[in-house]
Design a protein around this nucleic acid. Sequence first.
DNA 1: TGCCAGGCCGGGT
DNA 2: ACCCGGCATGGC
Length: 224
Amino acid sequence: MDDVDLVIPSLRRIYQRLLRALGPQQWWPAKSSFEVMVGALLTQNTAWSNVEQAIGQLTRARALSPKALARARPTRLQRLIRSSGYFRQKAAVVQGFSRWYLSRYRGSPRMMFRVPLETLRRELLAVKGIGPETADSILLYAGRQPIVVIDAYTRRIFRRHHLIEGGESYDQLQRFVTQRLPRDVQLYNEFHALLVAVGKRYCRRRDPHCAACPLGVFPHQGER
DNA sequence: TGCCAGGCCGGGT
DNA sequence: ACCCGGCATGGC
């Protein structure tokens, strides 16, 4: 127990507080692992409500499957996912991913998530439009693999609570969290979902009304 | 009305 | 190895 622990809240404590205050988040809201993957692509820098509409459109058009997306015409796909923003880029990304998923894994999550974690992560990162956060979201929320997801809320919340400087890379932040939490899929799942939930409500870029935040106000005054 | 949301890519230093 | 502009809709 070093001195830092006396002033800086441990990640475990943060997790417990968030869980008590907000309850289990039950992520990822989707009916299939493929829907999780598509959602992960569509939600890049985009409000989830916009993604929900796009998912709904794909579902109603019976287009939410690897095969349907792989052969869909670009203009039609763009129209279906328009609400999720960056729709031209994302249409290409979703289609490219679907084709990769079909040719590499026959559209089978079983086959896909059977390959070693680090190998699969590198494969995902090689798909155009998939960066570290999207790859890790797919691994954790679609594949239930034990990998920590970092996002803008994680960085902002950690910085405001002086756990980090703020300029760290994705991989650095991921190691930071991984080293401080037990390797547990369900814990990784809830931890990230809770950070997003608390971030949305209390830690927005502007107007971060920290007063009611279960983690306390910014600048953080220390715990105990 | 402007600002922002569960990033990533490509080109430039 | 960074740094930056571009990508786009819907909600508050």
